[in-house]
């Protein structure tokens, strides 16, 4: 699939561009694209059930933000009604709604980012220019399940020998406090052995280079170029001031015109690009399966 096939650097560039525009540009149309694109993509890669449970978690947050904004902010020229002597303005209500949408879209894009940029892909991405840091991160990930198992073993041993009581909440807390130093002592000794072994194999000697497992391919370059072009056109249109939109004191009109249109179209395409790719691949797979004769 495209999200697994393309080079991590391509995806990282993509997410940075989408998120930068989503967090920076205050234009309802762009925000709509970002929100819809992010939600659809999340639904496509996480599945319907995960999408619904996520919605149950994020929607209340968005509603809360949308409701609280007009309560805190009284700017704007069109009061709808008064509450405790403070005006609730139309502008603040709409601003709150857009803000809620923006928070949702950034959350969804971040969810997609962490699903697509799995740890192995992060390592590929950073291994090139930060090899030491990437290796440290990778070792941390490797230690984690090992330490977890050891912790379980120590806990079981402690309980069996009667050193760790778990009769009450505070007993359990005290037990955990005892467990932590024991775990540290055990794991640091192991770590020192590993580092000796690494040294023995010549890690860190001068003149050694790092292996690059995944090189940029033709396809990656094409996608990167498309992404940079679409993102660049959006940013250009924004820098020229053709995407600006404001709420206070009065809501402005949605900018239209050649350059604004260029910005809308390129950001729209950018936001829906991964969904289109997913859908295309799903459809191809569907067609291929159709050609397999059953029985």
């Amino acid at each position: 699939m495209s999200r697994e096939r393309l080079h991590p650097a391509v995806w990282m560039t993509y997410y940075l561009l989408v998120l930068a525009v989503a967090m920076f540009y205050w234009n309802p149309l762009l925000q709509g694209f970002a929100l819809l694109g992010g939600m659809l993509y999340f639904a496509a890669i996480a599945g319907g059930r995960a999408f619904l449970s996520e919605l149950g978690f994020t929607l209340p947050l968005a509603v809360l933000v949308a409701i609280t904004n007009p309560l805190f902010s009284h700017a704007g020229a069109t009061p709808l009604f008064f509450m405790n002597g403070n005006p609730i303005t139309l502008e603040a209500v709409l601003y709150g709604i857009l803000l809620a949408g923006m928070i949702l879209s950034v959350l969804y894009w971040c969810k997609c980012l962490s699903m697509v940029m799995t740890t192995d892909r992060l390592l590929t991405l950073f291994g090139g220019f930060l090899p030491k840091l990437a290796l440290t991160f990778s070792m941390t990930l490797r230690f984690f399940p090992r330490l977890f198992r050891q912790m379980k073993a120590m806990e079981a041993a402690g309980k069996t020998s009667g050193l760790l009581a778990d009769d009450s909440f505070f007993d359990r807390l005290r037990g955990r406090m005892k467990l932590l130093p024991a775990l540290i002592g055990w794991s640091l000794e192991r770590a020192m052995e590993t580092s000796a072994s690494m040294k023995a194999r010549g890690y860190g000697l001068p003149g050694r280079t790092n292996a690059v497992c995944r090189k940029m391919r033709g396809e990656d370059v094409v996608f990167l170029a498309v992404i940079l072009l679409l993102g660049g056109l959006t940013l250009l249109s924004g820098i020229l001031g053709d995407l600006s939109f404001w709420f206070y004191p009065r809501i402005s009109d949605l900018p239209t015109g050649g350059i604004s249109l260029m910005g809308y179209v390129s950001y729209g395409l950018l936001c829906f690009l991964p969904v289109i790719l997913e859908w295309k691949e799903w459809y191809q797979w569907h067609l291929l399966r159709k050609k397999i004769p059953l029985s």
Partner: peptide
Amino acid sequence: ADARMMLLIAVMTALSVL
């Protein structure tokens, strides 16, 4: 920072997350 320091950081990080 050598392999030892890297492992030390790795272990302490894993432990604090744990």
